[in-house]
Write a protein that binds this DNA or RNA. Structure first.
Length: 738
RNA sequence: GCAUCCUUAGCUCAGUUGGCUAGAGCAUUCGAUUCACAUUCGAAAGGUCGAAGGUUCGAAUCCUUCAGGAUGCACCA
């Protein structure tokens, strides 16, 4: 036993590199190479090399595919850290562990990004290039983004199996998308129809309800004289075609008017004949309780019109300009027309009064444009239509028994076949389903999966491949990007082919993603997998929070408060970056991150490094048979207790507590106390105590390396590689301590 | 309008079925050390656990009401 000699010479078993502080960046790069060479991220390799049994329990996670819209942000880093911890923990337990990576073509997001750049740099629109040329550009951009992302995912230490990488728009996934579409079409759950949709006049496409962001705005609310009525409206520019005035059937103020009664009145561009309608949709509490309706540009009005079988007309065009129905106001933009119409009504004495009110304005998530409801021929998934699953492994969903997609989505969570962590999000999930309307899946953009439907005169054909014969034209619309994402857990495993991977790894074990895409994605996966496979896509949904800045603000480029994960990795190492995103982050809660926090965890990596140095310097004569003194046995038991605690926390998804427990034991107990008292022991003449202590130090170190490996994989592996004796060449596949 | 979450030390947060004197990190102050540590170690100070009621032998924890903050959904003529 030796302490560090005073003369500067070094004990023989200490690798040279240990004499310097831990250099995260250098070490991490060589460790990455080591892992890549090992191939252990591929479960087949682990089986071949006897690391896991071919009959071991499978553990699988599909990577939520990052959008190919540029680079990864710190939120992605948090996601990767969580998933990598779960995966490394499972792999070390000997499970057949697959973490399947991929990227998402992200239809609208990617296309609009390229369009913006093109407009800015060259002043070109996509229409200037045409569908084919434009798509070439998007594909090139997507490829570059993909390459960047792959590098970033790897750099943070993600032990994904690149040999199985997938892309939502590649050939295999295209086959899956078309097959799923056809199946749903044949079951009558996908239909095409004229419905009121959310039209984005800037992006020139429809968007789903979930792609809308509501902005609170203070706007004018006009009370207009409509014959004997006073009607309230915030949108006078839509009122040209309004020939119906609707009141609540029980509204005493309007008891004198009968349903269906016609009245003649003076309106914006002259006299019109209007009809009184009594319908419970009119809210007596709101405004005057009387309203006119514009079915073409309002969902509620559309419903009323459908109920009473009314005719309706488009007032605003696809670019947000008024149509000829507006007479002298035709071709004006909404904002301009609104003012002028009010001026005219004022002149005609038809404005009763003007008030202001605060309401939510629907804007498009991607373009920021104010959404204009429009009636359009679109494709939808019917969430309320009864159908029967031909096969079902879902409890509570019998095969060949009538059900609906809504019921399916609810059932799997209610019965606990899918567990949402934290569980409070289950309520949010149910609430969303209850309010769910048919899902509009067609988009008028070019980048994405084209709808697999062909037309020839009055014929319609839906299939995986184009139909035989001449004269068929494919639908020009593309699918909502979430349609292909919804298939992700099984399309990545080879479906529609019955592959070995699909058999082994589906349903996946955990889906880990942000709570902000619970509806977008998680719910859609449940829907698509339930219908297509008669199964659940995953057993657990782990929802992480948002990464915010130190003041709790959302990170955004415009605020300039973003933290670039790659920059942090270069400065402090991937281990430090990972720890800063894990400790203190419980499922579902946002995390506040600052650079200081990351810097703090850099010290931890260095601490571990130095602990290892001390231990190796003093355990040259380590003997695994050396009997423990009573005191050392107690410390060894404490270490075991930490292992159990960490393990329990990981299995209950409290990674923050697991990391914290190991961190504190290592620093405060093992380093500050055990190592300190070891110095005295090693200087003493008590051979028995010295032998016991050498064993304790060596074994506790290796134990802690294994426990900490999922959290700080690089520094633990770097130390492991320098151990004079170890049971496994690579820590990544060492046995998780029991 | 409906629902969810948060409010504990200056800051960031633990405290999971109610139970030993309410904890940690950072920051602050004081001291030690350069003997594994581009340091580290020790110590101190710092809290009426958002407010008020209630249940209980016992409440940061459970219940009720209220206040402030955040979020989701719905409404939004």
């Amino acid at each position: 036993m030796t302490l560090m000699p005073k003369d500067g010479s070094k004990p023989s078993n200490i690798p040279e590199v240990f004499l310097k502080p831990y250099n995260a960046v250098d070490e991490e790069l060589s460790i990455l190479a080591l892992w890549e060479k090992s191939g252990y991220a591929n479960p087949d390799v682990c089986i071949q090399k006897g690391i896991s049994s071919s009959t071991a329990e499978p553990f699988s996670i599909v990577l939520p595919p990052p959008n190919v819209t540029g680079t990864l942000h710190i939120g992605h880093a948090a996601m990767l850290a969580v998933e990598d911890i779960l995966v490394r923990h499972a792999r070390m337990q000997g499970k057949r562990t697959l973490w399947l990576p991929g990227t998402d073509h992200a239809a609208i997001a990617t296309q609009s990004k390229v369009e913006k750049e093109m407009q800015k740099k060259e002043g070109l629109s996509r229409h200037d290039l045409g569908r084919e040329k434009f798509l070439e550009r998007v594909v090139k951009f997507a490829q570059e983004s993909h390459d960047t992302i792959v590098g970033q995912v790897t750099r943070i230490g993600s032990s994904v199996d690149w040999s199985r990488e997938a892309f939502t728009l590649d050939e295999a996934r295209t086959k899956a998308v078309r097959t799923a579409f056809k199946n749903m079409y044949d079951a009558g759950l996908i239909y095409r129809g004229h419905r009121i949709v959310n039209w984005d006049p800037k992006g020139q496409t429809t968007i789903s309800d979930d792609e809308i962001v509501y902005e609170e705005r203070k706007e004018k609310f006009y009370y207009l004289k409509y014959g004997p009525f006073v009607i309230g409206t915030a949108r006078p520019e839509t009122k040209f075609g309004d020939k119906y005035v609707v009141v609540h059937p029980d509204d005493a103020r309007y008891a004198d008017y009968a349903h269906g009664q016609e009245i003649t009145l003076e309106w914006i561009n002259g006299p019109i004949t209007a009809t009184v309608l009594k319908d419970a949709a009119a809210n007596p509490e709101f405004g005057t309780g009387a309203m006119t309706i514009t079915p073409w540009h309002d969902a509620t009005d559309f419903d009323i019109a459908e109920r009473h079988d009314l005719k309706y007309e488009q007032v605003i065009d696809w670019y947000g300009k008024l149509l000829p129905i507006a007479g002298e106001f035709a071709n004006m933009k909404i904002a301009e027309a609104r003012e002028k119409i009010i001026e005219k009504l004022q002149a005609k004495g038809l404005v009763d009064r003007v008030e202001e009110y605060v309401h939510n304005v629907a804007t498009a998530e991607r373009t920021g444009a104010v959404v204009e409801p429009q009636i359009k021929l679109q494709w939808f998934i019917d969430v309320d239509k009864p159908f029967a699953l031909p096969h079902s492994q879902i409890k509570g969903m019998l095969p060949n028994t009538e059900t609906t997609l809504k019921r399916l989505m609810k059932t799997v969570v209610e019965t606990g076949q899918v567990t949402i962590v934290p569980d409070r999000f289950a309520k949010t999930y149910y609430n969303w389903i209850d309010n769910l309307r048919d899902w509009c899946i067609s988009r008028q953009i070019w980048y994405g999966h084209r709808i697999p439907v062909w037309y020839r005169e009055n014929e319609v054909y839906c299939g995986i491949e184009a139909p035989e014969g001449a004269g068929w034209e494919q639908d020009t619309d593309t699918l909502d990007t979430w349609f292909s994402s919804g298939l992700w857990t099984f399309s990545t495993l080879g479906w529609p082919d019955q592959t070995q991977d699909l058999e082994t790894y589906h349903p996946t074990t955990v889906l880990e993603t942000g709570y902000d895409i619970l509806f977008f994605w998680v719910a859609r996966m449940v829907l698509m997998t339930g219908f297509t496979m008669g199964a659940v896509p995953f057993k657990y949904v782990y929802l992480h929070g948002l990464v915010r800045d130190a003041q709790g603000r959302k990170m955004s480029k415009s605020l300039g408060n973003t933290i670039d994960p790659l920059e942090m990795i270069e400065k402090y190492g991937a281990d430090a970056t990972r720890m800063s995103l894990i400790v203190g982050a419980q499922p579902g809660n946002d995390i506040k991150l600052s650079e200081d926090r990351i810097r703090g965890y850099k010290h931890f990596a260095n601490k571990l490094w130095n602990i290892a140095r001390f231990v190796l310097e003093n355990t040259e004569s380590y003997d695994p048979q050396a009997p423990y003194t009573a005191h050392d046995a107690k410390i060894a038991a404490e270490a075991q207790e930490v292992v159990r605690t960490a393990h329990t926390h990981i299995t209950t998804f409290r990674l923050d507590l697991a990391a914290d427990a190991a961190y504190h034991f290592v620093w405060d107990r093992f380093a500050s106390e055990v190592l300190e008292e070891s110095k005295t022991i090693f200087r003493s003449e008590d051979m028995e105590a010295k032998r016991s202590r050498a064993r304790l130090l060596y074994e506790t170190l290796t134990l802690m390396l294994r426990v900490l490996h999922p959290f700080v994989p690089f520094v633990t592996e770097a130390i492991w590689q320098r151990l004079p004796r170890k049971e496994s060449d690579v820590l990544m596949v060492a046995k998780w301590p029991q």
